[in-house]
Write a protein that binds this DNA or RNA. Structure first.
Length: 799
RNA sequence: GGGCAAGUGGUGGAAUGGCAUACACGGCAGACUUAAAAUCUGCUGGCCGUAAGGCUGUGAGGGUCCGACUCCCUCCUUGCCCACCA
């Protein structure tokens, strides 16, 4: 007979909802703890990744609560975005209705897993009471010059007459109509996130409870690189070509220059050259290719000689100027100096086009070789050669000296380049926050006044997926009056990227119903920062960077006083089936609902926590979940076999278990915490538990299997919720062992074990060890060279 | 190409300088049962051995150390992230 999980789970979910067991209030009595899991996109069904993410959070939340913290543990829905819009197009329904239906379904599933959310704080980003504050934030940024408009390239389907997201471009064609996608320049809204790049980089140092790799990924994304901008004169024209390099130590080895095909100087320098026609047709060909094709790593680098020459300022050498597809206009200055011997891409290109090479860095301790002998570029450190007055210097030292010298001589100047681009936020889509801007014939671009917010998204419209932004076709939305001059005007029809919505939702959770601003300053002051944030590694860059940026912006606005939003971060691993990511397209989805029907939510929770540590990948094993179910039944049966008084050794095991479980939960080692609870249960089966010990076990199980534990707690005669009890404390005195097993090694190999009193002296221990009969055959009366004693652990005899 | 992880029984994993394989899955055996399921108990890395026991063993090779899954070096493999980024 298995325990009645269906009845129990439904019962307690009802009671928790009725009693509002997990609602959080500002108050000085308990220390605050803000625990947040990344909110889901309401796509319909919950998947195992969600189950994992939210179970990890739930255990921690319940644990912290029982440890005496005032826990804020909210949940909401990231409800704007393309899937709803696509569903609306496909099924000819409304995006709002579809989204609400999905939210209702998902909320139900989350509740059936027993998560301890404060449901009174639920938010959905697609509702005007949320997105009006997106618009408000937009306006504040606009006022401060942090939002601007400029042309940007988008993927464009000429047939659908609409922009496409990268993932909607399949093999260079539109996913819906298979037409070849082209690139098109459109006026787009941008956020000047680059204004915060220094702070975003600097403050990474404060995030010492974040995973190392997330910090590294953010650093790489910001991409600060220090180098020199060098000015190359052209031979026949007055133009200067600036080139950015981080390897100014290799300047004497620069044997040609390469410009990006879009470089503005290309046309000027090739004018009248014999190569002009050929070069122009090459450029036309390259610029037509989409970026996806051009940046594919397996494509051969192509290029062409322009007929023009540049002068290398350090040695006045004439070097040819080329145009090639591997140089990008977006990075640096759109022009590079090529050093084939010390840059692999330049090396391959020079070999392919018979361009000269010169070695200028010699690896330490190696014989000089000819550049013709090289099979690949040498990119490491070494000694300067063929570098004029810098010969013989280590290149790292030369780097600094050359930069100084070039600045003195006016050949270049030290510069810093960043990889970070400004953030394109406009989308030619329907299902997003309308951008609060009005275009007036007389006044130009006019911000919607704050009092007119929200600019409501019209909700009953037809969308076809064709003809650009759907809002263009809603007359009542588009036509308006200019807030300044009251003449006829047109509304912006672009909406915001959904990353905007999720960049500040953690602040909204502090006061989700506040109507005087995006959040109540007092509440945010109390709850922020988020003490623990939990989510997938796929958000390691964009979402986290944008959230950090918004936090810094709110700080500058004077709305909050913290610089970083997330104190501690946990990135959970993916859920795999047969070594592959679970996904619809692979058809290997294990549905949470059917598992819960068979074993209950508590068994599913226990399995997902027990089977792997949170950060690693989790391999789904249908049989292992049955083991978890059996374990719960095993615990359930203890109820009917309690003793009056348990034996002392069990009490000791209990204290050890309390220590281990408490420490493991705090460190997110849920798998070993559960393992030690299983060991505890095995010990109970050996010697029998009394009521007190059994209830301590149940309390420790309660964060993992809340319904199960509440039920046993109640059946044992307790009136209030188990989550109102205190987390058990261990008695340090109970942990002390009187006897300890000492390992005895001979030459590092275990040859014997002895039991000795814990507080034995070192000399006495030595004496006992050497007297051990079992060692005799290994010692063979040979002299002892060394004797290592590690107190309470081992003795190693070296002979 | 760069960065970051990881590699341990048949399987998921534990041990982060001191008894390798905790806990669980699977497998085998026993008890209970007319029988099965459920449950309880025991065994379960490989090789040699009837056994006691011995040897060997944490991707490969080397190093440091009395002692290495753990630290260092070289290499291999896998995963994730980034990338014609100068």
């Amino acid at each position: 007979m298995s325990y009645p999980f269906k009845k129990i789970e439904a019962k307690w979910q009802k009671i928790w909802a009725r009693e509002k067991t997990f609602s959080a209030k500002v108050g000085p009595q308990r220390k605050k703890y803000y625990l947040l899991e990344m909110f889901p996109y309401p796509s319909g069904k919950i998947h195992m990744g969600h189950v994992r993410n939210y179970t990890i959070g739930d255990v921690f939340s319940r644990f912290k609560y029982m440890c005496g913290f005032n826990v804020l543990h909210p949940m909401g829905f990231d409800a704007f975005g393309q899937p709803a819009e696509n569903a609306a197009i496909k099924n000819k329904t409304q995006a709002l209705a579809w989204t609400i239906k999905c939210i209702n379904w998902m909320r139900q599933e989350l509740k059936s897993l027993g998560f301890s959310y404060d449901w009174q704080r639920e938010i959905s980003t697609c509702l005007p009471q949320y997105y009006r504050w997106n618009q408000w934030i937009f306006l504040k940024m606009f006022e401060r010059g942090l939002i601007f408009k400029k042309e940007a390239v988008v993927n464009w389907c000429p047939d659908c007459q609409t922009t496409l997201a990268n993932e909607e471009v399949v093999d260079g064609s539109c996913w819906r109509c298979k037409t070849e996608v082209i690139e098109k320049d459109l006026e787009q809204w941008f956020i000047k996130i680059t204004a915060y790049k220094e702070k975003l980089l600097e403050d990474l140092a404060k995030l010492n409870s974040w995973p190392e790799r997330v910090i590294t990924m953010q650093e790489n994304w910001l991409g600060k690189s220090e180098g020199v901008e060098i000015y190359f004169k052209t031979k026949d024209t007055a133009e200067l070509i600036p080139v950015f390099t981080t390897r100014q130590d290799t300047i004497f080895g620069a044997t040609y220059l390469v410009l990006a095909p879009e470089h503005p100087l290309v046309e000027k320098i090739i004018k009248g050259k014999p190569q002009e026609k050929e070069a122009l047709s090459f450029i036309a060909k390259v610029t037509k290719e989409s970026k996806v094709v051009r940046t594919a790593s397996d494509v051969k680098k192509e290029g062409i000689f322009t007929g023009a020459y540049a002068i290398n300022p350090v040695n006045n050498e004439e070097i040819p100027i080329w145009v090639a597809d591997y140089v990008l206009m977006e990075y640096g200055t759109g022009a590079i100096m090529a050093v084939p011997c010390h840059d692999q891409r330049d090396f391959l290109f020079a070999q392919g086009h018979n361009l000269p090479m010169r070695i200028v860095i010699q690896p330490k301790g190696q014989q000089p070789t000819a550049s013709s002998q090289m099979t690949q570029a040498y990119e490491g450190d070494g000694i300067q050669v063929n570098s004029g007055q810098f010969d013989g210097l280590p290149n790292q030292e030369a780097k600094i000296k050359i930069a100084q010298w070039m600045e003195e001589k006016g050949m270049g100047k030290r510069t810093v380049h960043w990889r970070l681009r400004d953030w394109l936020i406009s989308r030619q889509r329907y299902w997003g926050t309308p951008i609060p801007i009005i275009y007036c014939q007389k006044c130009g671009i006019v911000a919607v006044p704050e009092k007119d917010l929200p600019v409501k998204l019209p909700d009953k419209i037809k969308i076809s997926g064709k003809g650009g932004s759907p809002l263009n076709y809603v007359k009542s939305f588009v036509s308006t009056k200019c807030p300044k001059c009251k003449s006829k005007a047109r509304r912006e029809t672009d909406t915001m990227a959904t990353f905007f919505d999720s960049s500040w939702y953690f602040l909204r959770f502090c006061s989700p119903k506040f109507t005087q601003g995006p959040f109540d300053k007092k509440e945010a002051h109390f709850w922020m920062p988020v003490d623990q944030y939990i989510g997938g590694i796929e958000h390691a860059i964009l979402h986290l960077l944008y959230s950090r940026f918004f936090t810094k912006f709110f700080k500058d606005l004077g709305w909050i006083d913290i610089a970083e939003p997330f104190q501690r971060l946990l990135t959970q691993g993916m859920v795999l089936k047969d070594g592959e990511v679970m996904s619809k397209s692979r058809g290997n989805i294990v549905d949470a609902d059917s598992i819960m029907k068979k074993y209950g939510a508590d068994s599913l929770r226990l399995f997902i926590l027990f089977t792997a540590p949170p950060e690693t990948e989790l391999e789904w094993d249908g049989r292992a979940i049955e083991g978890c179910f059996k374990f719960l039944n095993r615990v359930w049966r203890i109820q009917d076999n309690l003793k009056e008084k348990a034996q002392d050794p069990l009490l000791k095991i209990m204290h050890k278990t309390i220590k281990k479980v408490s420490e493991d939960i705090e460190a997110f080692k849920f798998n070993t915490a559960i393992a030690s609870l299983m060991e505890f249960v095995n010990a109970i089966y050996q010697s029998g538990a009394d009521r007190e010990i059994f209830l301590k076990l149940i309390i420790m199980l309660s964060p993992f299997v809340p319904h199960f534990s509440e039920e046993i707690w109640q059946r044992s005669g307790n009136k209030s919720s188990i989550f109102k009890t205190e987390w058990p404390k261990y008695d340090a005195e109970c942990l002390i062992d009187e006897l300890v097993t000492i390992i005895i090694q001979v030459n590092g190999k275990v040859r014997s074990k002895i039991e000795v009193p814990t507080e034995i002296s070192e000399d006495k221990l030595k004496e006992l060890a050497l007297a051990d009969e079992k060692l005799k055959p290994w010692m063979q009366n040979k002299p002892i060279k060394n004797l290592i004693v590690v107190p309470k652990k081992l003795v190693n005899i070296v002979i």
